[in-house]
Amino acid sequence: MSVSAIRRLILIGLLISIGAALSVANPSFLTLDNLMTMLQEASLTGIVAIGFTLVLITAGIDMSIGAVIAITSMICVNFISYTSLPAYIFIPIALAMGCLIGWFNGFFITYFKLPEFIVTLATRGILTGLALIAAVKDSQGFVKNVFIQDELFLSFGETVGPVYIVVIVFFVLALATQFFIKRTRAGSNVYATGANPTAARLTGIDTDRTLIGVYMFSGFCAALASIFLCARMMTAMPEFGIGSEMDVIASVVIGGTPFTGGIGDIWGTVIGTLFLALIKNGILKLGLSPYIQPIVIGGIIVVTVVLDVWYKGFAEQRVAKLARQKQMPTREGV
């Protein structure tokens, strides 16, 4: 069994055992309502994390995702407040804006060869400011967060049976993205670009196009999550999503996609997202001090990363040994 498969099994095992422990500790944990809200929470982070995973696979980083959530929510609320356009028109426009922001990130990264961190951090700053400027104001110029009553828009926050629509969208998007990166040429290009950009270029891969595409997808995912967030909260705030980058990064890293590029997949991210949501929910259920939450999450990240590095070293030794053994027979033949 491969390293990543073992890692994944351990994580799933932990997921189940923590879940079981929580069910015993607090009877309200194992209720349909609680599981569904937990999945809803996980999905809002998870949709963003799917796009972010692809960025990490290319060895990049996208710090602008939180700000994309903010600006998308502002775009929607402006349409709702100042136009009579129906949701099925302005939602695609908002999603396209997410892609466009991603395109800008990708363009600056590839065309000017700027570091991803700097570019997306700058984008984050610009969008944060724009979101405040774009926010709906009252007659005296004070930001007024609108209570959304557009029924079609709000239906994004509804459920199908007991399951929130956002959860269904999250799993469908995960499935599609996993299929895309593993089973299409464009998906292979994403891995190749992250693992070894020079080699990828030499093989004839247009790494710039791949990168731009990945950042566009990341922007799209953040915009999509924003719509579900607005529908859930029935409002839009210019600070929506700002600061949520950390949860997204944590989910992806716990899921086993490292910062070094070329490795990782969506299933890992799905598990990582569920894991994080479970921990957060569990902290509330145990009635622990709220200050514990960031400490626990930080701790989990450190532990997973340390274990990853430790296991990687171990696996490399084993591989080196295997490689040496493979070499033996040919050597004696000389």
Partner: peptide, 23 residues
């Protein structure tokens, strides 16, 4: 959401935003 799921009997809330907590 969590307090609702946990079956709390009442909630005292200082909303960070009027619109955002309405739902």
């Amino acid at each position: 959401d969590d307090l609702i799921n946990q079956g709390y009997n009442a909630i005292i809330l200082q909303p960070a935003d009027a619109a955002a907590l309405t739902a």
